[in-house]
């Protein structure tokens, strides 16, 4: 499933270069939005959808680690002296 999320992300990036709409402005979606603009609105919606899948299948912090991090209270950074 993880790889499907990567593939969908890649598809979204490729779909952004929508040269097939570049030279036409009709149809107007909902009578208002030129088709090229509507396509990019679709990409925004797609980005949110891929975000949901990313959270479900690729989330980088597991519950135990998160619990431990929330509990911990590191003091403000006292950076080490480096050369």
């Amino acid at each position: 499933m993880k790889y499907l999320v990567y593939l969908l992300f890649l598809a979204l990036v490729l779909a952004h270069h929508d040269f097939w709409w570049w030279d036409q402005h009709r149809p107007f979606i909902f009578g208002t939005i030129p088709v090229g603009l509507a396509w990019h609105v679709g990409i925004s919606l797609g980005a949110a959808f891929v975000g949901i899948l990313g959270i479900l299948f690729c989330w980088p912090v597991d519950d135990d680690e998160e619990e431990a991090l929330i509990e911990s209270a590191a003091p403000p950074s006292q950076s080490q002296e480096h050369s």
Binding site: F9, H16, P34, G36, L37, V41, I43, S44, A48, C58
Partner: peptide, 20 residues
């Protein structure tokens, strides 16, 4: 209309990517 593609749909993809 190209301004939406240049800024918003690219940002929609990559801002969330960077947050993640």
């Amino acid at each position: 209309i190209g301004v939406y593609g240049k800024m918003v749909s690219w940002s929609g993809i990559f801002h969330s990517f960077c947050f993640f």
